[in-house]
Computed example of a mutant assay.
Amino acid sequence: MAGPAGTALPAHILVIDDDERLRDLLQRFLAESDFLVTVAGSAEEARAYLVGMAFDLLVIDVMMPGETGVEFLADLRKTSEVPALFLTAMSETEDRITGLETGADDYISKPFEPRELTLRIRRILDRQAMAAKPSMIQFGPFSYDTDRQVLSENGRRVHITTAEQDLLGCFTAAANQILSRDDISDRLAGRMKGRSIDVAVARLRTKLEQDPRFPVFLQTVRGRGWMLRTN
């Protein structure tokens, strides 16, 4: 989502769960993770919100009284493809498959760590963002094919390592947005952490910048992280 002057707006999450305590916990945690959060205690209440508001992702409890989460999503899929993640206490494989066949993008079993939920939400949103973007990202003389993970400069392929492919994938998925170390670590599911990210950024700059000391494309935003400038 984009706001005024191209600034990124937080993704809007609708949490649907009949457990008030869990709803409140998720609302606080997801808000602290920079999401905009609305909560509903039933499928009926969720429908009322969906009539007048736009959401980037739904977090749905499967075993709600009355209309279950599976029934709610099956009905919603007749008119909407908004991404959805199921919260489920069910451990049987067949039950999970049924949920995914209904149209859920992912599920997480209770009890769960809130950080894992955040990671799964971000992965779904990243996949949606990538699907909506062209596979070829252009910046200066460079082009990056996000499907093939190939970097080219003026049409000639530039060799980059697997770690650099992962890092460039993060930046192209969030072009012109600031990514912190934690953002990058989350997007890479912890495969890169802390100072190793600084090292990888420095190495990638040697392949993108004429003078890595004064970067034009992969810029440092002091105290916040880095940004890939494509415009």
Rank of each mutant, 00 (worst) to 15 (best):
P212T: 10
G103D: 13
G155E: 04
S109N: 13
Q165C: 10
D24L: 15
L36W: 11
S152V: 12
S91W: 03
L14R: 05
S143K: 07
R187L: 13
D126Q: 15
R224Q: 14
T230V: 15
I108S: 13
F214L: 05
R203Y: 06
M1N: 06
V201N: 04
H159G: 08
P65I: 12
L85K: 04
E209I: 07
T68P: 07
D186V: 10
F55W: 07
G6W: 04
D18I: 08
T220S: 13
L85R: 04
V199S: 09
R28L: 14
M90V: 06
E116D: 14
G69K: 03
R28S: 10
Q138E: 12
F112Q: 12
A40M: 04
D183V: 04
D61F: 02
D126W: 07
E113Y: 05
T172Q: 01
L87Q: 07
P65Y: 09
T118V: 15
D147C: 05
R205W: 11
A175C: 01
V15A: 13
R157C: 08
M1S: 12
A175N: 01
D198P: 03
L179W: 04
Y107R: 09
A189G: 01
R205S: 11
D198I: 01
A189V: 01
E153H: 04
L50V: 03
P65V: 11
T172L: 02
L58Q: 04
V59T: 05
A46D: 05
L151F: 10
A84G: 14
I178Y: 01
I121A: 03
A89V: 14
R23A: 13
T93R: 15
R148S: 07
T68L: 12
T7G: 01
G99E: 03
V15F: 06
T162E: 12
D126F: 03
R156T: 14
Q165F: 01
L188F: 02
K207D: 10
D17C: 05
R21Y: 11
R181S: 02
R122W: 08
E44P: 01
I13Y: 04
E20L: 09
A31H: 10
M53S: 13
M90E: 13
D34L: 13
D198A: 06
I197S: 05
E101R: 15
A74G: 06
A8N: 02
A54C: 08
V51L: 14
N154W: 00
L151G: 00
D211Y: 03
A8M: 08
I178C: 08
D19L: 09
D166L: 09
M130K: 00
E81N: 15
V15L: 03
P134L: 07
